[in-house]
């Protein structure tokens, strides 16, 4: 059985249906890219996985168990670490406090997060609201790592960042893949960077999985059909 399996997931926001049948599998230690144009259901899929949105049909298993009935905090404790879209750090808390508040025992602690992102160590006692966008993104990743997840989900982690900072984030993702056994589910728009890190790709269109295969099978034709503007 796969580490994470979504099978025929459907979900709605009130009367508006957003997901019409999402299938996704991710093996342990693998990096999976979740792609699609704007409004195709990527963030909704992530919300369903993290139990922030109830699904109306389909099955959802993670690490060998059905997590469909878990509240969000229990899903997080089961090993799902989310880096949400738009960062959303706890603004009035300092860098250290943001990380300390989320900490759960395991390999990842403050020192190790600072090793991955040295800038967080330098800004230890600065409140999150005063950090730059890139630093807030690093903090959001650090905060998710502090919960010692087995699956880290990055939702648009490089969106709206300067190119230099994006490189730093991608380098961190690459080092997570190389140095840890962490599984990663990455939502992003930059195909070139995703090709470097992802083993597998899933493409959504109008709330449905329309393509899923190994990343190297994603040729130009597929990209033009589903990802081009």
């Amino acid at each position: 059985m796969s580490f994470l399996t979504l099978d025929g997931i459907t979900a709605s926001y009130g009367p508006t249906q957003a997901l019409f049948g999402v299938d996704l599998t991710l093996e342990a230690g693998e990096v999976c890219a979740l792609m699609g144009r704007n409004g195709m259901g990527k963030s909704s899929t992530i919300k369903v996985i993290c139990r922030l949105l109830k699904h109306s049909g389909g099955t959802l298993t993670f690490d060998g168990r059905d997590i469909a009935s878990l509240p969000a905090y229990k899903a997080a404790r089961a090993g799902l670490g989310l880096v949400p879209e738009g960062r959303r750090c706890f603004g009035p808390l300092t860098v250290h406090e943001n990380l300390h508040a989320a900490a759960r025992p395991g390999e990842w602690d403050f020192a190790r997060v600072c090793k991955l992102f040295p800038r967080l160590g330098e800004r230890r006692d600065q409140v999150a609201a005063s950090l730059s966008g890139g630093e807030q993104q690093m903090l959001a990743i650090g905060r998710a790592l502090m919960t010692n997840p087995t699956l880290l989900i990055l939702d648009e982690a490089t969106e709206g960042l300067a190119p230099v900072v994006r490189q730093e984030i991608w380098a961190a993702v690459a080092s997570l893949k190389r140095d840890t056994g962490l599984s990663l589910l990455v939502v992003d728009k930059s195909l070139a960077e995703l090709r470097q890190v992802a083993d597998r790709a899933v493409i959504l269109e109008r709330g449905r999985t329309v393509w899923a295969d190994r990343m190297d099978a994603l040729d130009r034709g597929v990209a033009d059909t589903y990802l081009g503007v």
Binding site: C50, L52, P71, A72, Y73, K74, A76, R77, L80, G81, L82, P84, R88, F90, A101, A102, R104, R143, A144, M146, T147
Partner: peptide
């Protein structure tokens, strides 16, 4: 909501 995603109720 963010607190829930880091495993706190």
């Amino acid at each position: 909501e963010r607190v829930e995603t880091v495993g706190l109720a």
